[in-house]
Design a protein around this nucleic acid. Structure first.
Length: 591
DNA sequence: TAGGTATTAAACATCC
DNA sequence: CGGATGTTTAATACCT
């Protein structure tokens, strides 16, 4: 028989009955919610603690260093919060949680009361469909045993202050029934009068808020409206994606945190950065990935993007992104997100750490990346080699992917003996796209970006795509939501995030570019510059000679209305200063 | 299915 | 000559 993890969602569909599917969905969610909740809490506590200790210990340290560390931790904290918030938003969006965003944005404690009772999860995963038949082992093996695994697992192991002590321990022992702490009936497992999808008198099925007088009516509703059909199945998948996203994101944040703590010697826990990126958990379908849940991501404290190949329906991708080949597994075509949703810059800003550390191929085209690299520099110009460096600096994928870079100028980069195909790709793209303009400089030839050309290059038109919409509806929308939400957060109450001081010295610019460069982001229909900025990059920057080759006058034609309306990007709102702000980033080139 | 675009590989030219 | 840098072509894949 196939083990659960070998099953594709479709297969699961066939095997499972509608109620089972639904139950599965709920249970997944319950698990994730709990785990996340506890994890968040724990992390937050730890962070606070460490911040305190740092502050004390830091009395002797140089001020700046301490300040930076604190900032870093604060940032980490914020990110954790944001993560949680995003999670909540997602759930809420899907109607699974009736929590106000405002509430959610508060301290990390009130995770939704999405009533869920993962009772027969094991059976479901086993695909045996025989409720009542214990299958603890399978659960354990699937990795739900959070306690056993990585360093981060400790976070789960320790009973959270707020949540019932039972919750997490139930997993390991395989008796998920106990794991029901939700809502009022916390001590009760699956009280007869409740249903995971039923709360506050209404159906909690994603997108459905049908009012139901009582449980009976609800059950009826559930069976009629949410039977096993295409729609329900799709929603189920969508939910899986959501969960996956969160898992990945969680793993990522967790890893980062671990690394930070380890670096600061705050904990004995071995950092174990990212061991072998090229070690995909083989044979794990996306589905199984879900079952494995967060724990799976932790074992070595790092993110192991599963092989996309194995994920028929829901390829995992970096947080907040569209689909794209994730792994070095194979040639990656189509950097989707590049085309639709999140602008590269904000996407990078949000996930730059992720890309930096995880051997995940960034979902952007070479052109987008090159442009990003160039725009991140004060001069808006880079030499070929500097572009190479940027790639390796910003993306673990390019840095460590075997058989790619054969860097000659960057000693720290793994030689990899590869063919340097990506370098070739960079050169190829530079030459191929008119938007990249070579300029003779004092120090040789540098490459600049002709924004106008770049915009002209491709009409974003992501708006309409039905498939896109379909895909993004949930899991993917996480990205968009993520982006906008974070942007909003950053703008409103978390100046910290935009503070240059926060920047990782190694990769400065990345965190905030939320700002200007979004402007030209691939997916971005020329936001700001559309307004009045001439095609030419804003003059101030070009203190030097750098000038873009051909600048005919047909500007307006492609200029396209930079409608006063909402540029997709929040950051686009404040054009000028953003620009300046980013200007200061030293683009840091190694070499 | 056709057209557009992206990725990858490779050949070739030029310069230092 | 060899390496870095550019240019160009071709095959292939994905998306609309």
């Amino acid at each position: 028989m196939m083990s659960p993890q070998m099953l594709t969602p479709q297969q699961m569909q066939q095997i499972l009955s509608p109620p089972q599917l639904q139950a599965l969905l709920q249970q997944q969610q319950a698990l994730m919610l709990q785990q996340l909740q506890e994890y968040y809490k724990k992390q937050q506590e730890q962070l606070h603690l460490q911040l305190l200790t740092q502050q004390q210990a830091g009395k002797q340290q140089p001020k700046e260093a301490l300040g930076n560390k604190q900032l870093a931790f604060q940032q980490q904290l914020l990110q954790m919060q944001q993560l949680q918030q995003q999670h909540l938003l997602n759930l809420q969006r899907q109607g699974l949680v009736s929590l106000q965003p405002s509430q959610a944005s508060g301290p990390l404690q009130t995770l939704p009361q999405a009533a869920v009772c993962p009772t027969d999860l094991p059976q479901l995963w086993k695909g045996e469909g025989a409720p009542g038949q214990p299958a603890e082992d399978s659960v354990k093996q699937e990795g739900l045993d959070l306690t056993g695994t990585a360093t981060t697992a400790t976070s789960f192991a320790a009973p959270p202050k707020v949540s019932p002590p039972l919750s997490h321990h139930t997993l390991p022992n395989g008796q998920p029934t106990v794991l029901t702490p939700r809502r009022d009936s916390s001590s009760h497992e699956e009280t007869p009068g409740s249903h995971p999808l039923y709360g506050h008198g209404e159906c909690k099925w994603p997108g459905c808020e049908t009012l139901c007088e009582d449980l009976g009516q609800f059950i009826k509703h559930l069976n009629t409206e949410h039977a096993l059909d295409d729609r329900s199945t799709a929603q189920c998948r969508v939910q899986m994606q959501v969960v996956q996203q969160l898992e990945i994101q969680l793993a990522k944040e967790s890893e980062r945190l671990q690394a930070m703590m380890a670096h600061l010697h705050m904990r004995p826990s071995e950092p174990k950065p990212f061991s072998q990126p090229l070690n995909p958990v083989s044979g794990s379908s996306s589905f199984s990935k879900v079952t494995v849940s967060a724990a799976d991501s932790f074992p070595d404290g790092l993110v192991h993007p599963p092989t996309s190949a194995a994920a028929p329906v829901t390829p995992l991708r970096p947080p907040g992104l569209g689909s794209a080949s994730l792994h070095s597994g194979g040639p990656a075509r189509r950097r989707s997100s590049d085309k639709f949703c999140s602008p590269i810059s904000s996407e990078l800003a949000q996930n730059h750490e992720f890309y930096k550390n995880a051997d995940v191929r960034p979902p952007f085209t070479y052109a987008s990346l090159i442009r990003q690299a160039i725009l991140e520099t004060p001069d808006r110009q880079l030499t070929l080699n500097e572009i190479y460096n940027w790639f390796t600096r910003m993306f673990a994928y390019f840095r460590r992917n075997t058989a790619t870079w054969k860097m000659t100028s960057i000693p720290e980069v793994i030689p990899a003996g590869g063919g340097g195909s990506d370098k070739n790709a960079v050169r190829h793209n530079l030459s191929l796209h008119k938007c990249f303009v070579r300029v003779e400089n004092v120090k040789g030839a540098v490459w600049t970006v002709d924004e106008r050309e770049y915009q002209k290059r491709r009409p974003p038109k992501m708006t309409g795509s039905p498939t896109l919409v379909k895909n993004m509806i949930s899991g993917l929308s996480y990205g968009a939501l993520n982006a906008s939400y974070q942007a909003a957060l950053a703008e409103s109450s978390f100046p910290l995030l935009n503070s240059p001081g926060m920047l990782n010295p190694g990769s400065a610019s990345s965190l905030l570019p939320l700002s200007h460069d979004d402007v030209g982001a691939p997916g971005e229909p020329l936001p700001s510059n559309g307004s009045s900025t001439p095609p030419r990059l804003s003059p101030p920057q070009y203190s030097h000679q750098v000038q873009v080759k051909e600048e005919p006058a047909e500007a307006e034609e492609d200029r396209r209305p930079g409608p006063p309306l909402g540029p997709p990007n929040p950051s686009a709102a404040g054009p000028a200063e953003d620009r300046d702000l980013e200007e200061e980033l030293p683009g840091e080139e190694l070499s």
